[in-house]
Design a binder for these strands. Structure first.
Length: 302
DNA sequence: AGGTGGATCCTAACTGGGTT
DNA sequence: AACCCAGTTAGGATCCACCT
């Protein structure tokens, strides 16, 4: 992918304060606003426009929560800012502890009601699809009817908004692996093309586990389509692997239905076996080279 | 006396080695 | 080759001491 240049203005002079983002060749304007800084935003005209906004909270501990909302300028004179004020003063149930908001509008305030609804709908489904945050949505908007010209314009807006959101600290719209169609487990892209496999006949269940793993900049991803052990060994299976196994969606044959990210190779392999396992020796390339050997030779190349 | 910062303790998880 | 175990390490939380 080509490099991109973006402007991030630290409005309070600190990295944890308000941030305004603009890009050359993008009509969008984005703001990240910590909840405690909301009170300082009353003079920002862009925030009185129509747009789409996101509220973030820690969630129930399992995964963070994102709330997707929209604001048109017609309903009330104050646009996005007014909605944020409402969420601050009387938060919706489950959103009491939201800690920051990200808002998207445009420099020329071109979004009307249909565009806003379309965008809200699109952002929401992207968040659900990426499956990183628990996504909530105010009013289940329908996508509405936009012309195909308009749609391609909005789609371009969304492309940039996704990146901005990621840089602002929320990978809500980024799936673990890119370019994946619903039923395809073969062609997936990460920033590393090596694939690692493990295949073992498990003693406790007699079943054969067969899994595929890819590395990414975030860690180790056990890929959808992998077959994992049906039982766990309570004594030896590590906590992260246990939790991940409780959460993970599998079918009746224990075939994994989603990609699952781990911070270590061992966590990934323990997730597959349900028992203690050393990921550096368990994961192997198609040629039979262990992950350990791969990483050692990579280090020597440096 | 209250608050802030630091240090220590505890817990949990990862990895490497040992055993069957 | 698969599984088990334990040492080490990293991270988090709590408590205490010192400074204002």
């Amino acid at each position: 992918m080509a490099g991109k240049n973006m402007n991030y203005f630290l409005m309070d002079g600190t990295p944890n304060g308000r941030i305004k983002c603009t890009l050359a060749n993008w009509t969008g304007v984005a703001y990240k606003i910590p909840r405690i800084k909301l009170v300082d935003c009353k003079n920002i005209d862009y925030l009185k426009q129509s747009g789409v906004y996101f509220l973030f909270s820690k969630g129930d501990g399992d995964r963070p929560l994102v709330y997707v909302g929209q604001s048109g300028t017609r309903k009330n004179g104050e646009g996005i800012l007014n909605r944020l004020k409402e969420h601050h003063a009387s938060p919706k149930q489950g959103l009491e502890d939201w800690y920051e908001a990200v808002a998207f509008t445009t420099s020329n305030n071109i979004f009307g009601a249909t565009e806003i609804s379309w965008l809200e709908n699109r952002f929401f489904s992207l968040a659900v699809n990426a499956n990183r945050y628990e996504a909530k949505n105010g009013n289940e908007p329908n996508a509405g009817n936009v012309t195909e010209e308009k749609e391609s314009e909005l789609e371009e807006y969304v492309e940039y908004a996704k990146i901005v959101m990621g840089v602002l600290g929320h990978l809500v719209f980024e799936p673990l692996v890119q370019n994946r169609t619903p039923h395809n487990t073969e062609c997936v892209e990460t920033d590393d093309n090596l694939e690692f496999f493990m295949e073992q006949k498990m003693q406790n269940t007699g079943m054969t586990v067969k899994a595929k793993c890819k590395r990414s900049s975030e860690g180790y991803i056990v890929l959808r389509g992998s077959v994992i052990n049906s039982k766990i060994n309570e004594k030896t299976c590590s906590g992260v692997a246990k939790k991940a196994r409780e959460k993970a969606k599998v079918d009746e044959n224990y075939t994994l239905l989603e990609d699952v990210l781990f911070s270590s190779p061992s966590a990934a392999s323990m997730f597959v076996t349900g028992a203690s396992s050393n990921g550096y020796t368990a994961w192997k390339t198609a040629e039979g080279k262990t992950l350990k050997a791969v990483e050692t030779s990579e280090a020597e190349e440096l």
